[in-house]
Design a protein around this nucleic acid. Structure first.
Lengths: 208, 208
DNA sequence: AAAAAAAGGGGTGGCGGCATCCCCTTTCCA
DNA sequence: TGGAAAGGGGATGCCGCCACCCCTTTTTTT
């Protein structure tokens, strides 16, 4: 079983990162700490394979490079055998380099880190590379969440709305089917179901 | 049906806020935007009852008070009839006051905003008050997530581990039962189930 | 010694999401 | 004018979570 620790003071973000870990490392134990002392205590009590840290913790100045690196140094020092990923709200290539020198394997900016991207970072680290993900000028697609739609239904609707113009629906069904390892007829069914629900709500987006 | 918009550039945080809204305003439609232009476009196309905004958006300097207030002003101006909540990583009481003057009803710091707290903010706003939640020196309880445990099982384990010393388990069962409107025997069952699973995993925390 | 709390099991029905397979009509366009 | 794409349904089995109900034994409390 894998063991991971997330050190991050924003509760929702910490829980989100923990949830990401739970879905990409299946059968894993994930702990979370909102401050440095709690994190150090957990690292003392237990061995972790992976530690994800946001250097902007309470008690430190998130705009001070020294404070931030001190947090990283403390965490890495407390768990020298773990893989370490730094997750931050403000990217800084210099800081990324400094983290690397401290023994960190990945440096990821929160902006642009969306659901399901953590596995890519982990794969890169598994291959022995340093994973650097700075904020990218993002494709400006709005997210939409509707009542009564199931996760699968949301998924196919989102894929359908961000498809390239001219793409056949059929192709999107195939794409989703490939991604999930299911039948294309099933993704088509989810789409139809979702469409029917949205029609009933009177909230059918213009892409149909 | 309620309509809400979340303007936040960090994907996981935006999705988390949207999920929070979906559970506290049931039967609602929630949109999300990661940048100001997308947000303005959505506000033009549709009417929203509630808009949650993080003023640190791409294209603006998150450390510049002017940039931040400009973002808020633009959003409020684009949706003058909506309720507005500002969510930020760095609290600042002066900024909170400035936001209030711009027509914002709530100012919430991400640190200390945990799952299920958004409803309290919304209730306060419904009563016509200005909801101010700055970061608080938080109770340093680690989060724990185990494989194979269901949400209910995690819930009762978390409650059990953070109970005051001397509290009977029975009392915690009653507390959870009251919160969820279920039978105390059921919460007891969840606890027993969770305990059995943790024992089998060899990961039973010390509080038993 | 009696009572309460805790530990450790068993089984039940209901519900919703997932995935599959089937049917039909309409529309598009090459 | 065909065939593919799209729109619109119904029905099925599986599985996991939820909430409930029942039982026994051991430990702790009083």
């Amino acid at each position: 079983m894998h063991r991971a620790l997330v050190v991050e003071d924003q509760d929702l973000m910490r829980l989100a990162l923990m949830a990401e870990l739970r879905t990409c490392l299946r059968d894993c134990y994930v702990a979370g700490a909102q401050a440095l002392p709690v994190a150090c205590q957990l690292l003392e009590e237990d061995q972790f394979d992976l530690v994800i840290t946001d250097p902007g913790l309470p008690g430190f100045d998130p705009t001070s490079p020294e404070d931030r690196l001190h947090v990283i140094e403390t965490i890495v020092g407390a768990a020298p055998n773990s893989a370490h990923i730094v997750v931050t709200g403000s990217d800084d290539e210099d800081e990324a380099r400094a983290c690397r020198l401290l023994g960190v394997q990945g440096y990821v900016c929160k902006t642009g880190l969306s659901q399901g991207e953590l596995p890519l970072v982990l794969e890169q680290i598994d291959r022995g590379e340093f994973s650097l993900r700075l904020s990218k000028p993002h494709t400006p697609n709005p997210d939409l969440r509707f009542p009564t739609l199931t996760p699968r239904e949301h998924e196919i609707i989102a894929m359908m709305m961000r498809r390239e113009p001219g793409t056949k629906r059929r192709e999107v069904f195939d794409e989703m089917a490939n991604q999930l390892g299911i039948n294309a007829a099933s993704s088509e069914k989810y789409y139809k179901q979702a469409r029917a629900k949205l029609l009933k709500l009177g909230r059918l987006p213009k892409g149909l």
